[in-house]
Amino acid sequence: MRKFIGLVLNEWLKLSKKSTFFIAYGLMIVMPFAVGYVVHSVAGDMFASGPQFAAEMLLPSGIGQILNILVIIGTAGIVAKEYSQGTIKFLLIRARSRTAILASKFVTVLLYALSLTLIAAVAVYASGMLWFGNGGGGLGIGDILTSVLYNSVYMVMFATLAFMMGILTTSTGVSIGVSMFALMISNLVIFKDFYKYVLFPNLNLAAYEGGGAPLPGMTLGFSILMLAVYFLLFLVTGFMVFRRRDVA
């Protein structure tokens, strides 16, 4: 376990040296206050309270989408750059299995996503309290955490997709491009029976609030099952390719 933690710390240090690392945290601090100021100035009655502002903004349709994009950009090259920079050979000659090396990279991706989410949630909540106060709206911390959970589903799935694409293509640009394209079309709805088996409609767990569904015939349990299948598919594919690829 200590060796694995050491691998994760090493990956975190390498990630923190990227130029986009601290920019992402800065954006997640500044943007909520800027958005809150603009909304308060233009339409001050749009949100009845700070918690309502936070709950809305942290969804994938708000600042949550920017958060997802930053996670994709920040982690898409965590494997691909090892190939483009020629460091993959030095990484694999260490006394560590390929599975442990790749697992440490994926854990680092999740930690990066989690840390950005925490920063964004605190900043959005503080912005909401600053510009809209704490009264009215009928929403509280529980609703904010629910929005964070809904957005985290998107974030983890697209980060895992970007992670897999980085392994398959060994190209940071391609992995970002494919993941961003998938993110942009994730709201596309096709009212056909087969579409419920596609990843995108199952990402929208918020649609089940109030007894609704992304598409007729879908249930919360079905969406959770489909998300688990895609998550495992992305990971297993990435790990299999990484373990079998010849880098000599």
Rank of each mutant, 00 (worst) to 15 (best):
M1I: 00
R2K: 09
K3M: 09
K3G: 14
F4I: 05
I5Q: 05
L7F: 01
E11R: 07
L13S: 13
K14D: 14
L15G: 03
S16M: 11
K17T: 13
S19G: 11
I23P: 03
I23L: 11
A24H: 00
A24T: 04
V35G: 04
Y37S: 12
H40T: 08
V42D: 00
D45M: 08
M46Q: 15
F47A: 00
F47R: 02
F47S: 02
A48I: 06
S49L: 04
G50V: 13
G50K: 08
P51F: 05
F53N: 04
E56Y: 02
M57D: 15
S61G: 14
L67D: 11
N68G: 14
N68F: 02
I69C: 14
L70Y: 11
L70M: 15
A76N: 04
A76F: 07
I78L: 15
I78Q: 10
A80M: 07
K81L: 15
K81M: 11
E82V: 00
E82W: 00
Y83E: 12
Y83D: 13
Y83N: 11
G86K: 04
G86Q: 02
T87S: 11
F90I: 05
L92R: 02
A95E: 14
R96W: 15
S97R: 09
A100F: 03
A103S: 15
A103D: 11
S104V: 04
S104Q: 10
S104C: 13
K105R: 14
K105V: 03
F106N: 12
V107H: 07
T108P: 01
V109P: 12
Y112R: 11
L118T: 08
L118F: 08
A120I: 08
A121P: 10
V122M: 12
Y125M: 09
F132Y: 06
F132Q: 10
F132S: 01
G137N: 00
G138S: 01
I141C: 09
G142Y: 06
D143I: 06
I144M: 05
T146I: 11
T146H: 03
L149E: 07
S152R: 09
V153N: 07
Y154L: 07
M155W: 12
V156G: 04
M157F: 08
M157K: 06
M157D: 08
A159N: 09
T160M: 01
L161A: 13
G177K: 01
V178H: 10
M180L: 15
F181P: 14
M184D: 12
I185Q: 02
S186R: 00
S186Y: 00
N187A: 14
L188Q: 09
L188T: 12
F191W: 10
F191E: 15
D193A: 12
Y197E: 12
F200M: 04
F200C: 02
L203C: 10
L203A: 11
N204E: 13
E209R: 14
G210H: 06
G212M: 03
A213E: 01
G217A: 02
M218R: 02
T219I: 02
G221R: 02
F222Y: 07
S223A: 12
I224N: 06
M226L: 10
V229M: 05
V229C: 08
Y230I: 00
F231K: 05
L232I: 11
L232N: 00
V236N: 05
T237R: 05
F239M: 09
F239P: 02
F239I: 09
M240N: 13
F242P: 03
D246K: 08
V247M: 10
